[in-house]
Simulated assay, not measured.
Amino acid sequence: MSVEMELRAVRVRYGPLEALHGVDLPVPAGTATVLLGRNGSGRTTVLRALAGAVRPSAGRVLWRGADVTRLPPHLRARRGLCFVPDLRAVYATLTVAENLRLAGDPDAALDAYPELRPLLPRRAGTLSGGERRMLAVSRALAAPARVVLVDEPSLGMSPPVAARTYTLLGALCARGTALVTAEQRLPENLPRGTLVHELRRGEITFSGEPGEPAARRLLGGPGLPGTRAVSDGS
């Protein structure tokens, strides 16, 4: 299993507060990685550090062995990184159709989320939370990327659409994409081979696979017995 990106002893500060305390995190190619934790645990900051949206106060960010710690977000995007944040992930003043055209292949997005088709003329800012989330996640599906980072991909979605979303994201892994998502609870429809990391107060407190007994104990009981892995995201 080759490592696509990696955090090595990364610390991130927001003013006087340190959000990450020397985090080590490998991101394997062709694999789904799920970051679990409550609000304030540091999972979003891990995504932002990988994307270049925040610069570590210490430690390094590597991409296929090359140090990209100081590489800005737009250059990481040109190298093949797609970051979908949890907030402000769509252009609110543009229509759904315009957002999709900026993302890449609109047809791929509409195949993934046909619910967006009747909404094409509407401005993205008028959509419901779940509709905006579908539009945001479709960015990751419309343009091929080597690394896809999505903060709470199923936020505001109905359970069937949330399950479909992880199936679609899992299919990216089958094509070799390194996928990293941040969630408060372990989602369903995880692709086979998913790795789970729990964060608490800026530190990784558990790393393993979803079905491990330690994961059931550490990661929160309800919701875990109902999760299931599906081969290659299908």
Score class of each variant (00 low, 15 high):
residue 140 A to I: 01
residue 150 V to Y: 02
residue 132 R to K: 10
residue 17 L to H: 09
residue 71 L to Q: 13
residue 220 G to D: 00
residue 143 A to E: 14
residue 50 L to Y: 06
residue 171 A to M: 13
residue 94 L to T: 09
residue 179 L to V: 15
residue 145 A to H: 13
residue 145 A to E: 08
residue 113 Y to W: 06
residue 186 L to P: 14
residue 191 P to D: 04
residue 10 V to L: 02
residue 184 Q to H: 14
residue 89 A to L: 08
residue 115 E to Y: 13
residue 21 H to W: 13
residue 94 L to V: 07
residue 21 H to V: 09
residue 19 A to H: 10
residue 64 R to N: 09
residue 232 D to P: 00
residue 124 A to H: 03
residue 176 G to M: 03
residue 92 A to K: 09
residue 115 E to S: 14
residue 172 L to N: 02
residue 172 L to P: 07
residue 125 G to R: 07
residue 112 A to C: 03
residue 109 A to H: 03
residue 122 R to V: 05
residue 97 A to G: 15
residue 201 R to M: 03
residue 175 R to E: 14
residue 183 E to T: 00
residue 145 A to W: 10
residue 8 R to L: 03
residue 170 G to Y: 04
residue 120 L to Y: 13
residue 127 L to D: 06
residue 128 S to T: 09
residue 141 L to Q: 01
residue 105 D to Y: 05
residue 96 V to R: 12
residue 170 G to W: 07
residue 125 G to D: 06
residue 91 Y to L: 12
residue 83 F to Q: 10
residue 151 D to T: 07
residue 63 W to P: 02
residue 188 E to R: 12
residue 143 A to W: 13
residue 74 H to M: 04
residue 75 L to E: 15
residue 177 T to I: 01
residue 52 G to E: 10
residue 206 F to E: 05
residue 223 G to T: 10
residue 229 A to I: 05
residue 206 F to R: 12
residue 15 G to C: 06
residue 211 G to V: 01
residue 104 G to M: 00
residue 98 E to W: 03
residue 21 H to C: 08
residue 56 P to K: 08
residue 138 S to Y: 00
residue 21 H to I: 10
residue 181 T to Y: 06
residue 70 R to Q: 15
residue 214 A to D: 03
residue 162 A to T: 06
residue 130 G to Y: 12
residue 143 A to T: 14
residue 65 G to M: 13
residue 151 D to Q: 04
residue 194 T to P: 13
residue 146 R to W: 13
residue 25 L to R: 11
residue 173 C to D: 08
residue 32 A to Y: 02
residue 42 G to Q: 09
residue 160 P to Y: 05
residue 124 A to S: 12
residue 76 R to L: 11
residue 204 I to N: 03
residue 16 P to F: 00
residue 7 L to H: 03
residue 192 R to I: 01
residue 184 Q to M: 01
residue 44 T to H: 12
residue 15 G to D: 11
residue 75 L to S: 12
residue 90 V to H: 06
residue 131 E to T: 12
residue 182 A to W: 06
residue 81 L to T: 15
residue 116 L to G: 11
residue 142 A to D: 00
residue 22 G to M: 06
residue 106 P to N: 02
residue 205 T to P: 08
residue 169 L to G: 08
residue 76 R to K: 03
residue 177 T to G: 03
residue 23 V to K: 12
residue 112 A to M: 07
residue 118 P to I: 14
residue 111 D to M: 05
residue 58 A to P: 11
residue 198 E to V: 02
residue 170 G to K: 04
residue 33 T to C: 01
residue 17 L to G: 08
residue 14 Y to H: 09
residue 133 R to I: 02
residue 154 S to T: 10
residue 101 R to M: 02
residue 28 P to F: 12
residue 136 A to Q: 01
residue 212 E to Q: 15
residue 56 P to C: 04
residue 13 R to N: 14
residue 24 D to K: 08
residue 44 T to S: 15
residue 170 G to F: 05
residue 151 D to L: 04
residue 169 L to D: 06
residue 4 E to R: 14
residue 121 P to G: 14
residue 233 G to E: 07
residue 94 L to D: 11
residue 56 P to R: 11
residue 218 L to H: 04
residue 35 L to N: 01
residue 119 L to R: 15
residue 87 L to I: 01
residue 68 V to L: 11
residue 31 T to N: 08
residue 98 E to H: 08
residue 210 P to D: 08
residue 193 G to E: 02
residue 154 S to L: 11
residue 85 P to H: 01
residue 88 R to F: 04
residue 128 S to F: 12
residue 100 L to R: 13
residue 64 R to V: 04
